[in-house]
């Protein structure tokens, strides 16, 4: 074969480009990828937290840690409960020791004993991933290891996450952390493995007071969907434009 170096390089480059392109097309146009692109009509998970019902027992946190194998004694958790106490002098005490895993059993908000007669109001606020419609964590992941499913849940691919922590930084709600064992980004996913099998998330099942509810926001007859539509709910940190899908009943302006 009589070929100059220039020609050889030219043909080589063209071949690589052509192969790369066709492999790329086959890879991107896989049926499951296309299916994911097309948002499902039927199902969009949403959560309702009724803060007026929460008593701060922490059973939800305990159940979550056990269900999702988050090492029990490590100071991270997929869901947690915050305690807010506002005194008559306008002081706000807020805390969540160990994510309220052991419940709030002592009168010690931020390590201070507050006299009963000094308190104006006090309440508990459970927190979990908001499964945003416009999730900043998904936006910033450099490798696409975290993604949104068609039913609205944001998941993390543990085999692909590089552990840069950009998603942790991008989440305005602080729900993400590095899994102590797998060392990749970790977050609440409404117990995706359970809800896919028509079960309730571990925290919902663990709550004896009905403070946590999950349902399909697109189904007009769904009880959660009814609450969101008919009652006065609020979402956390709306100003970030993330469109959270955890709706709160009885949310107060002092909640962070």
């Amino acid at each position: 074969m009589n070929q100059s170096r220039r020609e050889f390089l030219k043909t080589g480059f063209k071949t690589i480009l052509a192969t790369g392109f066709s492999i790329g097309v086959f890879e991107t146009l896989r049926p499951e990828v296309l299916a994911a692109l097309k948002k499902e009509e039927g199902l969009r998970w949403a959560f309702v937290v009724d803060t007026t019902k929460c008593i701060g027992c922490g059973m939800c946190v305990k159940a979550c840690k056990l269900e999702n194998e988050i090492p029990y004694d490590v100071n991270v958790t997929r869901t947690w409960v915050e305690r807010y106490v506002m005194t008559k002098d306008g002081r706000i005490y807020a805390d969540s020791p160990k994510g309220a895993r052991d419940g709030f059993i002592k009168n010690d908000p931020m390590g201070v004993t507050v006299k009963k007669e000094d308190i104006d109001k006090g309440f508990f606020v459970p927190k979990l991933c908001n499964q945003c419609e416009n999730p900043p964590c998904v936006q910033v992941c450099p490798v696409g290891a975290t993604y949104q499913t068609a039913d609205g849940i944001v998941l993390v691919d543990r085999t692909w996450c590089i552990g840069c922590g950009y998603c942790i930084m991008a989440c305005p709600y602080g729900v993400r952390f590095f899994h102590p064992v797998y060392r990749v980004a970790e977050k609440c996913n409404f117990c995706y493995h359970r809800i896919k099998k028509d079960m309730k998330p571990a925290c919902v099942d663990a709550c004896s007071f009905g403070a946590r509810l999950i349902g399909n926001i697109r189904d007009p007859w769904d009880s959660v969907s009814r609450i969101i539509k008919t009652e006065r709910t609020a979402v956390l940190k709306e100003e970030f434009g993330t469109k959270p899908h955890v709706f709160y009943l009885g949310l107060d302006s002092i909640v962070r």
Binding site: V140, C141, P142, V143, G144, C161, I162, G163, R183
Partner: peptide, 28 residues
């Protein structure tokens, strides 16, 4: 520094394999 920072330095190559272009780091 990024390589030393990553929890999985050897997966750093994923940024080139599956760049997710809505991320600023993917442009890297």
């Amino acid at each position: 520094p990024i390589v030393l920072h990553l929890q999985y330095p050897f997966r750093g190559i994923n940024v080139f394999l599956t760049p997710h272009f809505t991320s600023a780091i993917a442009a890297f």
